[in-house]
Computed example of a mutant assay.
Amino acid sequence: MTILKTGLLLFALFYLLPLGISAAIYQTRLSGTDWWSADRSSAGLLPPARSPGAVVRVFAAPTVRWRGIFAVHCWIVFKPEGEARYTRYDYTAWGDPIRMNGFEPDGRWFGSTPEVVFAADGAEAEALIPRMRAAIAGYAWRNQGDYRAWPGPNSNTFVAAVLDSIPGIGVTLPPNAIGKDYPYDGRWLRPTASGTGLRLSLGGLAGLSLGWVEGLEVNILGAVAGIDIRRPAIKLPGLGRIGMRGPDGSGVPTPVATTAGTD
């Protein structure tokens, strides 16, 4: 009985309480916003598209309406060297799931300003783009009806699969990117996205990840709690990563600061 009580207390502390706080934040900030009229303009997080160098970004922002209490939506943006426009890929619930250039590359996601999850520029970005394109072209869950908001495959499953295709990229999606642990290729036990550990996923409904970049993550019904020792932080459902920022995971600074937009 003591073990049961301890387990319930930990569940309330690390799962229910963070989600309650996230719900209160949502109620304060966004509950009165109409999703169809919400701001989707550029947040000014990308270098001007006319800049000659290659660029790769992965963005995340709270998802639409009340679902933003629980999860973020992730997407991919890149521009090869010499091109004058960005290409954005999302995975959505309407039409063909893989959506290209449906929104501004660094656009606010229905009123929410995105954060940079991963950034690469120049030669590093140029080397990543062909592998990303190949992973997108070969993604299995690409037909109408394949999208499932929970437990996956959803937008975060798609981005996780693209990142998984690049060994050694050393990045992990935010803990509140629900769907990132869905076994998109049927493998329930696999290396973590960063390649620095192992991840066990029981259909995206439960799981455990342990890696140098990911730290320890415990997945219960898609909600992730955990701890990062490498860059000290805690990971909480709804609230995401709280602690030290770094060049991987949420909170990474944009390498090229700009207010010029993406024109």
Results as ranks from 00 to 15, higher is better:
204 G>D: 01
170 G>S: 05
185 D>H: 06
229 I>N: 03
195 G>W: 08
143 N>W: 13
142 R>S: 15
121 D>I: 12
165 S>L: 08
185 D>N: 13
232 P>M: 10
131 R>K: 15
165 S>R: 01
135 A>I: 05
234 I>D: 04
205 L>C: 06
230 R>P: 09
214 E>P: 09
207 G>L: 00
161 A>D: 03
132 M>L: 12
233 A>S: 14
160 A>W: 08
191 P>C: 10
137 A>K: 06
221 L>H: 02
134 A>F: 07
135 A>L: 07
186 G>W: 09
140 A>C: 00
184 Y>N: 06
183 P>T: 07
222 G>T: 06
148 R>N: 14
130 P>A: 03
156 N>G: 10
232 P>N: 11
218 V>F: 11
120 A>C: 04
211 G>I: 03
233 A>I: 01
197 G>W: 08
132 M>W: 01
128 L>W: 12
221 L>I: 05
172 T>Q: 14
213 V>M: 09
231 R>C: 10
174 P>A: 11
223 A>Y: 15
150 W>G: 00
121 D>T: 14
119 A>L: 12
225 A>M: 10
208 L>M: 02
211 G>R: 01
220 I>F: 14
221 L>G: 09
201 S>C: 01
222 G>P: 08
162 V>G: 11
193 A>E: 15
231 R>E: 13
222 G>K: 00
179 G>C: 06
182 Y>T: 11
206 A>L: 13
201 S>L: 04
202 L>E: 07
143 N>S: 15
153 P>I: 12
185 D>W: 05
184 Y>M: 03
226 G>P: 06
183 P>E: 04
178 I>Q: 06
190 R>D: 03
175 P>G: 10
135 A>P: 04
128 L>G: 11
131 R>L: 15
135 A>H: 09
149 A>K: 03
215 G>E: 02
168 G>I: 10
127 A>E: 13
222 G>L: 02
130 P>N: 01
121 D>K: 10
153 P>V: 12
188 W>M: 12
203 G>V: 05
147 Y>Q: 08
209 S>Q: 11
130 P>R: 01
201 S>Q: 00
181 D>S: 13
230 R>S: 12
129 I>M: 03
187 R>V: 06
134 A>K: 14
122 G>S: 06
124 E>R: 14
